[in-house]
Computed example of a mutant assay.
Amino acid sequence: MKRLPLLNWVLLSVGVLSFASCRTVYAPNAINTPLFQERGESKITLATNNLQAATAVSDHIGIMANGYFNAFTSDDRAFRNNGYGLEAGVGVFGSNENRISYEAYGGVGFLNVKIRENNDAKNFRAQGTKFFIQPAVGWVNPYFEVAFSPRLSVVKYGTPELSGYTAQEQADYYFNTLADAPHAFIEPTLILRGGYRWVKVQAQFGRSLKLTKNNLNYDDNVGSVGLIFNLARWYRD
């Protein structure tokens, strides 16, 4: 029986870590879209492989912090592909009387990727710096939230540390050109939230589309499922 496309997205997001056994060097994290309505509002998100926090420090300025982790281990544990990253950002937000929200955040972070093969006979490690800009528009009420964000991400890697890989393997996996130029992505993503007041279930569905021509093994899915907690006064009105 064929599954519906939406169900495939959900199954991809729940219980499946983002990295796969194709020597993934970049996997997009969940997008932090707070959709603030007032000064002093704060949101914390616990989602698959992601921990996010944001707070509105004034009537129109917000700050955020993101942490994420991805991992893949083969059944025989001979192949491992792990990565993690941390980000911080600042932006502006606003909304109207109908709770149509708009925001734009920018930030910077770092990421670390490790690959170990053939029981550590082959090793790869790379560190990178990530820059992102994420405008978003959405609608908010005490029971439901929906938003769309076309995040732009740019990642610049340093020269990787390698051992055990032949020159041909380094070329086949694009390891030898990883640090030559930045890698840019546009990541259009839909964010859905449902619940009541201070806690909602959140799901994200999107794609990571590479804008630059330099080759890179990357995950082209943006997906997560989790809970978002909202500390605010407006929904008590």
Rank of each mutant, 00 (worst) to 15 (best):
M1E: 14
K2V: 12
R3G: 09
R3V: 10
L6E: 09
L6D: 05
L7P: 00
N8W: 01
N8Q: 14
W9Q: 13
L12D: 15
L12H: 14
V14I: 15
V16W: 03
L17N: 15
A20M: 08
S21Q: 15
T24W: 00
A30I: 02
A30G: 13
N32H: 02
L35A: 09
Q37Y: 01
E38N: 07
E38Q: 12
R39L: 09
R39S: 15
G40V: 05
K43I: 11
L46R: 03
T55F: 05
V57C: 08
V57Y: 03
S58Y: 01
S58F: 00
S58V: 03
D59L: 01
H60F: 13
I61W: 07
Y68E: 07
Y68L: 03
N70S: 13
N70L: 00
A71G: 12
F72E: 09
F72G: 04
T73L: 09
F79W: 11
R80V: 06
N81K: 02
G83C: 02
Y84C: 01
E87D: 14
E87T: 08
G89P: 10
G91A: 06
V92K: 14
S95Y: 01
S95K: 11
S95R: 12
S95F: 00
R99N: 15
E103Q: 15
A104F: 03
Y105A: 11
G106C: 03
V108Y: 08
V108S: 08
F110D: 07
F110Y: 11
F110Q: 14
V113N: 14
K114N: 13
K114E: 15
R116C: 02
E117Q: 12
N118C: 03
N119F: 15
F124V: 06
K130L: 13
K130P: 07
K130G: 07
K130D: 10
K130F: 00
I133W: 03
I133G: 12
V137G: 11
G138S: 04
W139F: 08
Y143I: 08
F144G: 07
F144S: 11
E145C: 06
V146N: 06
V146A: 14
V146I: 14
A147H: 04
A147T: 05
F148P: 13
F148D: 05
P150D: 05
L152R: 03
S153G: 05
S153Y: 00
V154W: 00
V154Q: 10
V154S: 12
V155W: 00
K156Y: 02
K156V: 04
Y157E: 06
Y157Q: 07
Y157F: 13
L162I: 07
L162H: 03
S163V: 01
G164D: 05
Y165C: 03
Q168G: 02
Q168L: 08
Q170E: 10
A171T: 08
A171S: 14
N176M: 03
D180N: 11
D180A: 10
F185N: 06
E187R: 04
E187M: 07
I191M: 09
R193Y: 01
R193A: 11
R197Q: 09
R197G: 04
R197D: 09
V199E: 05
V199K: 04
Q202F: 00
A203I: 10
Q204E: 13
Q204H: 05
F205C: 05
L209V: 09
L209G: 02
L209A: 11
L211E: 06
T212R: 04
N214S: 14
N215M: 02
G223L: 01
G223I: 01
G223V: 01
S224C: 09
V225Q: 05
V225G: 05
L227N: 06
A232F: 01
